[in-house]
Amino acid sequence: MMAGTLPISYYLGLSALLFTLGVLGVLIRRNALVIFMSVELMLNAGNLAFVAFARMYDMLNGQIFVFFVMAVAAAEVAVGLALIVAIFKTKRSIDVDQMNSLKG
């Protein structure tokens, strides 16, 4: 039995680290596309935790949730990248520090 020898906490620790890297990317980068990629990293970290818990409790509900998260992520990326391309067409920039037109 191969995967049965690995404690579930390893997967959860790796998931926490991956989520932290995503948070770091969202917070420190100025490029909107890299921020989107970091959001994907966070979603993957959450998915990994879901799958690990599904394995731990021997239930499939976690895997179904991951399936829905993937569907929502696909929708989010499609709309988000269209928005970024539209913003680039009007402002010639995807720097989030320059997207301050609505600033009061």
Binding site: I8, S9, T20, V23
Partner: peptide, 26 residues
């Protein structure tokens, strides 16, 4: 921002440490 993400990591680890996680896979 780096400090905040470090704090997030610490919070997540504390959460995991206190969570009722079994040592072995089921």
């Amino acid at each position: 921002a780096a400090l905040i993400s470090l704090a997030v990591f610490g919070g997540l680890l504390a959460l995991l440490y206190n969570a009722p996680v079994s040592e072995r896979l089921a």
